Structures are given as C-alpha cells and as structure tokens.
Amino acid sequence: MSTRICLLPLIGLPASGKTTFSNWLLDISQKPINIIHICFDDYLTPPTNEKSSKFEFKQQRNSILSRIRELIYELKYAGNIPTHLSAVVKSSLCTDLHDFVVLCDDNNYYRSMRYKFYQLAKENACAYAQIYFDCELKLTLERNSLRPAMDRVSEETMQRMAKRLETPDPTTHHWELNTYTMSDCENYNVIRTRILAFLTKTFENMLQPMPVQTKLETIQSLVHQLDLLLRRRIGEIIQTEQLTTKRQIIAKALNIKRKELLQNVKIKAELKEISFNDLNEYVNMLYS
C-alpha cells in the first residue's frame, strides 16, 4: 500500500489549546492513522532586534517548511522519519499504517502562512486540512498567565495577534474548505470519534500538482501582476517630485530596482517560494 500524507496546520492564538490537542492526539491508542507533530516553538527563536525581526521570522519559517518538504519525501520513498528529524518531532507511528497526518503546530494567524502549507501539499500530492481553535482572547490570556514565565507571550503580542487573526473562510478561499473548528471548551475525549473521522476523511481528497504549462502560466502571471503594481507605485512616487530633472533621476533609479525585483520574484516563483499574497511586500522594497 502506498504512503499517503496530510499536512494539517493548526490555527489559533497562543494558549488556545493547539499543543495540548496535539499531545492528546499522539497519546490515543489504536488510531487509524500515524501522527507526526511539529511544534514551531521548538524551531523559532526571538529576533536579534526589531529591525530584523520580520526578515529573521520569515527565514526561520522557510527553514521549517524545507524540513517538512524533506520529511514528506522521506515518508513517501523510505516510509519513515529520517534520523536527524526524528529527534525534533513527536510521533505516534504504527508500521501497519500507511497514512500520516503531519500536525503543523503554530499560530498560523495569517492566511498566507496557511497557504504555504496548502502549496506544499499540492506540489507533493498530499492531502490538506486545518483545525481552527476558536478560543476567546480573554481565556487565552488567562491560560497564558499560568504558563512558566519563559513560555509566556506578552499581553501586547496576544492583543495584536487577536486583531490580525484571519479566520478560515472557505466561501472566498476554496482551499480552506477542509477545516474543522474546535471550540474553547471542547472535551477531546467526548469528540474523539468525530476528530478521527475528520482526519481519516482528509485522505479522500489527495491534491495533485499543477501541470507544467499551468505552472509556467502562474509564474508569468505573478511577474506580470508585480510589474503592474511596481509601475503604478513608481508613478505615484514620481508625481510627488516637482522638478522635472529630479523626476527623471528618480524614475531611472526606481526602474532599475523594478527590474531587479521582477527577476528576483521570477526565480522565487520557479522555486515555488512566493505567492500572490507576497507581492505587496516586494512593492514596498522599492524604497529599500
């Protein structure tokens, strides 16, 4: 029997129950599936300074995604977790089972974060699902205050994340259709059958990679869309300058930068490291 894998990001504020749920799922006996738990807190480290925080955070997440990609490959073609990864993931495995659910335990409060897992699942012909822990901010703050000091998240960060959290919306984002919502007072043992049924059902819809031609069209579309956004922003910048000669100098410099950014995005698109959600970030790079 061939190996089947489902990538399943967990969504929710800190202290909403994601890791508790993961540990509970790992401890269940006689499961119909194998469980692998990857806790992002074990990988992510605080940034060295505020200025580099966004860059460092993105680099760390990309590094974890690379490890997950490697894990998928090893599970598919070797049927086991590679030794150098087995020390940093938790797992509950049975050699008689060939279905693996990989729990990606992080806050995943931006939809773009989740979409990267969906892309990874699609390019590797995996299934995709997600569990949203719908927990009130007040309760997460209470739980967070009971954590050891070194594990607590600042209240300011919790408040900010609560405002920015993008809840799953399958009506406008079809790829989020396979979502299970967990309320903050759910008793896992009571809903055990329902949870296991949801996880098992995910394997009925294995995603398929895009055809080569479709992939090429996507890359061209990404680059074209970014080019339009950059040209519009350049026009806005130039209009703020009164002197014609200075406009020409600014326009020349910005167009050089535009071409560099387009080339950079083309390379990243070929490596599947960028999506339409990332384009505004590149528009902002015109100023750097």
Rank of each mutant, 00 (worst) to 15 (best):
S112R: 10
L262N: 07
I11P: 03
L103K: 04
N280H: 10
R194P: 11
D41C: 03
L261R: 06
R61K: 13
I234R: 05
L229K: 10
L137P: 07
K58H: 15
K76N: 07
C135R: 01
K257N: 08
L279D: 08
N255D: 11
K201A: 13
E166F: 02
S66Q: 14
A121C: 02
K201F: 10
I11Y: 04
D227W: 01
I237Y: 04
T3E: 10
E56I: 00
I72W: 00
E74D: 14
L279A: 04
L254G: 04
L120C: 04
R111G: 03
D96N: 15
Q242K: 12
T240Y: 08
P168K: 07
N107C: 05
N144V: 00
I5G: 00
L230V: 00
S275N: 09
N205Y: 12
C94L: 09
L207P: 05
N187A: 12
E260H: 11
R194G: 11
N178E: 14
F133N: 02
E155R: 09
T167G: 11
Y73N: 15
Q130W: 03
M210S: 14
L75D: 06
Q242T: 12
D105R: 03
S92T: 01
R4C: 08
T3G: 08
T45Q: 15
I267C: 12
I35H: 00
N49F: 03
S154L: 01
K54W: 13
N23K: 09
T193Q: 15
S221Q: 09
T202E: 11
I68M: 03
K246M: 12
R192W: 07
Q130H: 08
C6Y: 00
S29D: 15
P211F: 04
L120W: 00
L279H: 05
D27S: 12
M210Y: 14
T95D: 15
T48D: 14
A129N: 04
A125H: 10
I250S: 08
K259R: 13
F117R: 04
I195L: 10
F21S: 02
Y128V: 00
P168C: 05
F276N: 13
M150H: 15
